[in-house]
Design a protein around this nucleic acid. Structure first.
Length: 635
RNA sequence: UGGGACGUAGGCAAGCGGUAAGCCACCGGGUUUUGGUCCCGGCAUGCGCAGGUUCGAAUCCUGCCGUCCCAGCCA
């Protein structure tokens, strides 16, 4: 390690989060012999979301920082809620985020036998008993915060009777709810969790891994510390609501005389305009408010992946928000900032006209086509370039033209000159209208001396527009998204209000008939075709749009530029697929080819002639200063 | 009215008795063939409130106030 690095480490020391400071203290005292071993312990009862990502990043990076290890462990102690589908998705998501647990994939259910033995030990020690009260009685007798609890009439059963009863519970001699195993702690504790918590309940339900081997299942408080202990975890990091459970965590391990990790609690992530509760996300999916767990509007890892988020952006975000014990809500804007920061470096720039209007260059020869070179990424010269066809009839963005422009609008308007990116300066000469007076096309002339998009006479233009040659354009579908909810803070709803009162009816907008430069259809179409497996070759599409010439040139430049870019664009954590290329639609935003879990990449939607249309998802918009100015001018 | 925790800028968050880091947002300006990126500057006489200790307090003490969590055979 260089001296500079050492100094940086020293400097960083001051900035460490409170968890790392605790670990430092442990390392100084030698409590865990300098060892650091964390775990990420999801319950497989739903898909992972951005809040889990914070925890995943925390646990794995802490281990990395200290040269330790992290286990992936499924806390599958409740067969009524857990399913294999969720374990599969969780494994995929943690991997996608870029973390590796090597051979340390564990399941709480693998420890059921040992937990059972430990329970026997507690019973023998007189620290646990079988309670035959009903669930309702147990709950009632626990009483509330202001009064002490009432002890169970079964609390003083003999060790022998408890042993017998518990074994018969496990043997299936009782029906669900007939009795439970409880820890004998303190019915007068001000901490309700210590009032003889339930350790085992009877559940005659098949488990996704252990099948029908067990009909008693351990409760969280009993199981979790044992799982950590068995795996030799040093720091068991969890969220704030478990703070009240720590005395229990400690009590069990102390009574058992078992290896004892340190539980540490931190504040979970809350994000503005979104909701993180599994219950609600589940409801959104099941009641079809969204198109599944991987709907690009969902805060799930799979949804964000489909939306075009990169693992790097999510990880950078998780590290940037910090770790503390303060309940807080992070601005969505910060997530989007980290996203743009990453995407700006890697996205391939292409021109796509989302809301097209025809632009006719009156003095440009009919039938002539010029091919301009476009850089794929100004942030990365190695990304190469591509050829873009230019002709007499183009499409430009409808919003880039105004007949009666306000102040500070420096795009196209009658008599105004602007630059067409990579091509020429053009001056607007007028518009054509239909019978209703709607503009059907914009007319302009170009200056042949500005070839390439700049002028030797030093003349400046204020606006630069993106465009697509009409004859070469490929039709694509583009999905725009905004927040699922219209309310910033969903945690402070008033009595009688529901999350659904704040569902955003405009969270998804489908744009059809968008016009893309042929190169995009060529590369993305190829990716979609390849990934979809057996889908019709996209060559036909490109050919239909741009003709043989476009196809040939597009293909050759693909080999040079896009291939290399694609390799960089896909992170080391992703498959090296061209379908993972992130695009920047110039002046608009970042986009990615739609890749639903089911249905094939690019969605492969067909029109009535059976031609496939590529579908892109908007990941995030570019910062739009003009929109801000325009808004200010209006109001 | 019990217990556990937390209050530093609009949002996060450092700070650990020596005179308020950083990031986002926002506001100015510069560069620019993306109104993007990038660069420069501004943004807490103040740390929930009130007392106290001290030469000196966001940091220590006392008392208030506010917010969150806990009464599942969920995790």
């Amino acid at each position: 390690m260089s001296e500079e690095n050492t100094e940086n480490k020293q400097a960083d020391r001051e900035q460490k989060d409170f968890i790392r400071q605790i670990i430092d203290r442990h390392n100084e005292s030698g409590r865990f012999g300098g060892r650091v071993h964390t775990r990420f312990p999801p319950e497989p009862n739903g898909y992972l979301h951005i809040g889990h990502a914070k925890s995943i990043v925390l646990n794995f990076t802490i281990a990395e920082d200290y040269g330790g290890k992290t286990n992936l462990r499924f806390d599958d102690t409740n067969p009524t809620k857990e399913e294999q589908e969720y374990v599969d998705s969780i494994i995929e998501d943690v991997h996608w985020l870029g973390f590796d647990w090597e051979d340390r994939l564990f399941f709480a259910s693998d420890y059921f036998e040992r937990m059972y033995e430990y329970a026997l030990q507690l019973i023998r020690q007189g620290d646990a008993y079988v309670d035959s009260q009903s669930a309702e009685e147990i709950s009632r007798n626990r009483r509330g915060p202001t009064e002490s609890g009432v002890v169970s009439p079964y609390r003083e059963r003999s060790v022998e009777e408890n042993l017998d009863l518990f074994k018969r519970m496990a043997a299936g001699e009782f029906a669900d709810g007939e009795c439970v195993l409880r820890a004998k702690i303190d019915m007068n504790s001000p901490n309700l969790n210590m009032r003889d918590p339930v350790m085992y309940r009877i559940l005659h339900k098949s488990h996704h891994r252990t099948g029908d081997t067990w009909c008693i299942y351990p409760m969280y408080d009993w199981a979790h510390g044992l799982e950590d202990s068995i795996e030799g975890i040093t720091h068991s990091i969890c969220t704030l609501e478990f703070e009240n459970h720590r005395p229990l965590y400690d009590w069990f391990l102390d009574r058992l005389g078992a290896y004892h990790p340190q539980q540490i609690e931190f504040a979970r992530l809350n994000l503005s305009y979104t909701v993180m509760s599994k219950r609600l996300l589940m409801q959104l999916v099941q009641e079809n408010y969204v198109d599944g767990w991987d709907d690009p509007r969902m805060p799930t890892i799979s949804g964000m992946r489909r939306r075009g988020y990169t693992p790097e952006a999510i990880r950078a975000f998780a590290e940037r928000v910090g770790v503390s014990k303060t309940n807080s809500m992070v601005a969505l804007a910060l997530l989007e900032h980290m996203l743009r920061e990453d995407l700006n470096k890697r996205a391939i720039r292409v021109m796509v006209v989302l809301d097209p209007v025809r632009l006719v260059i009156e003095n440009y020869p009919e039938g002539e086509v010029e091919w301009f070179e476009g850089e794929n990424n100004p942030e990365d010269p190695e990304a190469g370039g591509r050829k873009i066809p230019f002709s007499r009839e183009l499409y430009i963005e409808a919003a880039d033209f105004m007949e009666d422009p306000p102040k500070k609008f420096f795009r196209l308007a009658p008599g105004r000159e602007v630059r067409l990116k990579h091509a020429y300066y053009v001056t607007c000469t007028g518009v054509e209208r239909d019978a209703e007076g709607n503009i059907t096309e914009i007319r302009a002339t170009y200056d042949p001396a500005t070839r390439g998009g700049w002028s030797e006479d030093g003349r400046k233009v204020k606006g630069t527009l993106h465009w697509v040659s009409a004859a070469h354009a490929a039709d694509v579908q583009v999905n725009h998204y905004s927040t699922l909810f219209t309310r910033e803070d969903l945690s402070d709803l008033d009595e009688g209000e529901s999350f659904f009162d704040y569902l955003n009816p405009e969270s998804k907008t489908v744009l059809t008939g968008c016009k893309a430069e042929p190169w995009l259809a060529e590369t993305a179409g190829g990716a979609a075709g390849a990934e979809a497996g057996g889908a019709p070759s996209t060559g036909a599409e490109a050919g239909a749009a741009g003709g043989a010439e476009a196809q040939a040139v597009g293909a050759s430049s693909t080999g040079a530029g896009a291939g290399a870019a694609a390799r960089r664009g896909s992170s080391v954590y992703e498959s090296d697929s061209p379908a993972n290329i992130r695009y920047q639609f110039l002046r608009k935003g970042y986009y990615v080819l739609d890749q639903p879990v089911r249905g094939g990449i690019g969605s492969g939607r067909s029109d009535d002639k059976g031609k496939r249309t590529l579908v892109f998802n908007q990941t995030v918009t570019l910062r739009d200063t003009w929109a801000k100015i325009a808004k200010k001018q209006k109001g």
